[in-house]
């Protein structure tokens, strides 16, 4: 049990720490690297919890595709030293106070709710492989898959439209 707890908490702490770094960095590229670390550690948690397929997807799509997309945008916008200085201007310590209070209140309520759960909620410790997931996904959840497909198609068209370079020129006559 202790080993199990350690297996869970080590990646969990890494994830929390790197996420904290993500939201505090001033350089976007650095923040993205920490985001990758956070996502990878969450992937480890998935794996140890018995969800190897989800872990693989987390690595491939989140840490791979999505973060790479972010990187491209950061590259295109060419965020250099000036943007870091601008971030320091925007990110004054006083800015943190009110949101931190709000989030703390939310944390307290959530901890209160989670701790109040009934006893003996221990994970089963079984591996649920890709075969089981696939069987379930394409039978009862088929409709959800279709809907996700629609969503992705809509996103594709939307991204294509928004990504055109001279969209703004038609806006103002």
């Amino acid at each position: 049990m202790t080993l199990d707890l350690a297996l869970f908490w080590i990646p969990a702490l890494v994830a929390l720490a790197s996420t904290l770094l993500v939201i505090t960095r001033k350089n976007a590229a650095h923040a993205l690297i920490y985001l990758v670390v956070s996502l990878l550690s969450v992937a480890v948690i998935f794996f140890v919890l018995g969800a190897p397929f989800a872990a693989a997807l987390e690595v491939v799509i989140y840490a791979g595709a999505i973060v790479v997309l972010f990187l491209f945008v950061v590259m295109m916008l060419n965020l250099g030293n000036t943007s870091v200085m601008r971030e320091s201007r925007w990110l004054r310590p006083g800015m943190w106070v009110a949101p931190a209070i709000l989030v703390s209140v939310l944390l307290i309520t959530m901890v209160y709710v989670i701790v109040g759960l009934p006893d003996a909620n221990v994970t089963k410790g079984e591996m649920v492989g890709p075969k089981a997931v696939g069987n379930e996904l394409f039978r009862p959840y088929l409709l959800a898959v279709e809907l996700a497909g629609f969503l992705l198609l809509a996103a594709l068209i939307g991204a294509y439209h928004l990504g055109r370079r001279y969209l703004e020129q038609r806006r103002e006559p």
Binding site: L5, F8, G50, I114, L117, N121, V122, T123, K124, G125
Partner: peptide, 11 residues
């Protein structure tokens, strides 16, 4: 194979 931890911790 997989670990057994309280769900509360994960949550």
């Amino acid at each position: 194979m997989a670990i057994e931890v309280p769900v509360e911790h994960v949550l």
